[in-house]
Design a protein around this nucleic acid. Structure first.
Length: 742
DNA sequence: AGCACGCCGACT
DNA sequence: GTCGGCGTGCTC
């Protein structure tokens, strides 16, 4: 510290400790404590904080030489001179090895990149139970884990509790190779073999594995996992959704008997979550399979990261620290010098751009392609139905009452007659998105949000999908009393009803967020489909992901067009991925592949997206999109950050962001390197009010990622307490770096 | 973020 | 007379 005030000499020495404090506490979550024994960086601790004792992480020696660290920019005051004495570390959880340097670097980077405090981020990615345990409780959990994994015979004394070792010399013992008969391996296609040869040769360079649905990407992953395990390393596999982990987990366990595989996702209970985390951290787990949170798993022997379906938006955390697990996976792999495979049939444009060679792309990743479906399966034939012609032919009313083109209906009937299954996609749940009074024009708006309440016919409710507000459907218009209130538009419930009317005798099923609310009900309903109890399945996009429906030979998408003209610049990319993925559901049985079809009803059949889809030509689609992005100054050619603000009034939210913008302009005049950064005026988001909270947002765009990073780091911290000043009626504000949607 | 302290309304 | 609303303020 700059003042040479005589701090009273202290026994022991200071240690910097990470605690769970948010950034607006002004301390980046680092506090100083006193300790009598040296503590390795990464060591888990219990430390007193206010009236509580909380979990902390030793973060190196105290840089300030024992004096408490002050908040950023805090002026020296009399209380500085008083130099409060540091409090003692309550306990070191030394039954656990410290979190290693690679892990600490990862959370340090992630916190800085996504503009959160290091303490908040580091602690929030540890299992909740771990943050609450003291030494004895931890010992009990460790014994339970020992028993579960059969690591030690019950009678044998443990010999793992070493004295604190200098942490970077900690090298956990690889698990002895399993002495269990390995299962027979499936034969590899030439394509798979070629990709595996290339992967074996390309070391730690990030790889995009661009493989169509059914080309056998998973087998490639498993071979690389096997290679990592044989080298004594751990493998980390990321998947987008919890739904997809049980299938893959079973396949991995069968493939690697004797190896330890653990799952990490939000569906696990707190106890199991801790056990699995401990198993990974101690190096006992060989394979970690999880959703985005698993990118932060502590893995001392990490040797491979796989990000399956890397384009999937679920990899972006949408609250708190808004990190991209895919991007962090690439950073982590690069930082640790391990291989990372990003797999997708429809890569994100960012990844695709990184994988294209210069000059089309930037050549940062190696691109490996698997364009062929295994077992001679061909991709489904794409059929476009021109709704404009249909309307001319049949009239608007007919179209509304029975929303299937006659040829599509005939195709559905044909499947029915042959005992095959069909999947109809509609990305809107409920019966109708809005109710409308024909007499006075009233619509079913939500009293708390700027959105319509959706009509759910089955439980006779009007429900707001934003705030959850639900009411019984009124018999008459609440505004004028007229009994003639009509559903407008169509959701999955209505589609189910219309299909039942159009296909008498067909067994119609529906899967969406409403039918799968109960735990395990998705699995049960999928099983029904697999067992052939359903002829036509209606669903939202949740059914398009990852599930194999071997007997489905027709997939239809009824209302895809919205994405073509959406203000969300990623909408076309998502639509293309969804339709490719949905089409991939069909015809995975070679015998049926020949007659499997993907039907799309559209008002714009000439749109280039559909042309590329018809040709199953992702590269052409991507090239077109990249050109548009470049012309519009959008990612991956520009880098974005989105500032969001919530307040009681729209004026307050906008005023707060405007003040931020004013300070940004000041900063930009001081620093020429930031002149190219654009700070757009604050605007309301598409849904401006949710649960009576007004929201505003402001876009920041920069041609250079490092410049954006430095700019945000200089700009935002000066605002940490702006929102708390009296008169600023701001509830919350936050920045979203690399937002998915603007 | 927690979790305090701190001043003003309807209950045992 | 207390329980409890959430408005400021601090945490080494």
């Amino acid at each position: 510290m700059a003042f040479d005030d005589p701090t009273p000499p202290q026994i022991g020495h200071g240690v910097a400790v990470l605690v769970e404090l948010p950034k607006h506490a002004g301390l980046n979550g680092v506090l100083s404590y006193r300790t009598t024994q040296p503590l390795a960086a990464g060591q888990l601790l219990r430390v007193p904080l206010g009236r509580r004792v909380v979990c902390g992480i030793a973060w190196g020696d105290d840089a300030s030489g024992g004096a408490p660290q002050q908040g950023l920019g805090a002026a020296p005051t009399a209380s500085d001179m008083a130099a409060p004495v540091l409090r003692d570390v309550a306990e070191a959880l030394d039954a656990l090895p410290p979190l290693d340097a690679a892990w600490r670097d990862l959370v340090t980077f992630a916190a800085a990149y996504y503009q959160r405090s290091t303490g908040e981020l580091a602690l929030s990615v540890l299992p909740a139970d771990l943050r609450e345990l003291d030494g004895p409780a931890l010992q009990r959990r460790l014994r339970r884990l020992d028993k579960r994994l059969g690591r030690t015979p019950p009678s044998a004394p443990k010999k793992r509790r070493g004295k604190a070792v200098p942490e970077d010399e900690v090298t956990p013992d690889p698990v002895p190779p399993p002495d269990i008969e390995p299962p027979a391996l499936p034969d590899l296609s030439d394509e798979q073999q070629a990709v595996l040869d290339a992967l074996a040769a390309c070391g730690a360079e990030p790889v995009l594995l661009h493989g169509v649905t059914g080309s056998g990407k998973t087998e490639v992953y498993l071979r690389r996992v096997a290679a990592a395990l044989e080298a004594g390393r751990q493998a980390l596999l990321l998947v987008p959704e919890i739904n997809l982990t049980p299938q893959l987990e079973a396949r991995i366990r069968a493939r690697f008997p004797g190896r330890v595989t653990v799952a990490m996702h939000s569906g696990l209970g707190p106890a199991e979550r801790l056990q699995n985390w401990l198993a990974a951290h101690l190096g006992w787990a060989d394979i970690v399979l999880g959703t985005r949170m698993a990118v932060f798993a502590s893995m001392p022997r990490l040797g491979l990261i796989v990000v399956d379906e890397e384009h999937d938006p679920s990899y972006k955390q949408q609250e708190g620290a808004r990190y991209s697990a895919r991007d962090l996976a690439v950073w982590r792999a690069r930082h640790q010098g391990v291989a990372v495979i990003l797999g997708s049939a429809t890569p994100s444009l960012e990844t695709w751009h990184n994988a294209l060679p210069v000059p089309e792309g930037n050549g940062r990743y190696r691109r490996l392609a698997m364009p062929t479906r295994i077992g001679a399966g061909v991709l489904p034939q794409v059929r476009l139905i021109d709704l404009t012609r249909l309307k001319e032919q049949f009239g608007a009313k007919q179209l509304r009452d029975q929303p299937f083109a006659p040829p599509l209906l005939a195709a559905l009937r044909e499947r029915l007659d042959r005992g095959e299954q069909s999947l109809v996609l509609l990305n809107r749940r409920g019966y109708a998105p809005v109710l409308h009074c024909t007499a006075c024009g009233w619509k079913s708006d939500c009293p708390h949000c700027s959105a319509w309440r959706v009509f759910h016919k089955l439980d006779r409710t009007l429900r707001c999908h934003h705030c959850g507000h639900a009411e019984r459907v009124p018999r008459a218009c609440p505004s004028c009393g007229d009994p003639d209130i009509q559903p407008v538009g169509r959701g999955t419930e209505r589609l189910e009803e219309q299909l039942a009317a159009a296909l008498p005798g067909a067994r119609i099923g529906r899967i969406d967020a409403d039918t799968t609310r109960a735990k395990g009900s998705l699995e049960a309903q999928l099983a029904q489909v697999h067992d052939g109890d359903i002829d036509v399945l209606v669903g939202t996009q949740m059914v398009a992901k990852g599930h194999d429906f071997r007997r489905i030979t027709l997939v239809a998408s009824l209302q895809a067009d919205a994405a073509l003209f959406s203000s969300d610049f990623r909408a076309p990319e998502r639509l293309f991925a969804l339709l490719m993925q949905a089409g991939g559901r069909a015809g995975r049985d070679a015998a049926q592949a020949a007659r499997s079809e993907l039907w799309i009803q559209t008002w714009h059949p000439q749109h280039p997206l559909y042309a590329a889809l018809t040709a199953h030509d992702y590269p052409t689609f991507a090239a077109g999109q990249l050109l548009e992005r470049q012309q519009a100054g959008l990612p991956p050619f520009a880098h974005l950050a989105l500032l969001r603000c919530e307040a009681r009034t729209q004026e307050a939210a906008v005023a707060f962001l405007a003040e931020l913008a004013r300070r940004a302009a000041e900063l930009q005049t001081q620093q020429p390197a930031w002149a190219a950064i654009l700070v757009y005026p604050p605007v309301p988001p598409s849904v401006q009010r949710v649960a009576n909270v007004e929201r505003a947002q402001m876009l920041v765009e920069s041609p250079s990622r490092p410049a954006l990073q430095r700019f945000l780091a200089a700009w935002l911290p000066s605002f940490q307490d702006e929102a708390r000043q009296p008169g600023t009626r701001v509830l919350r504000w936050a920045v979203d770096v690399d937002p998915l949607a603007i």
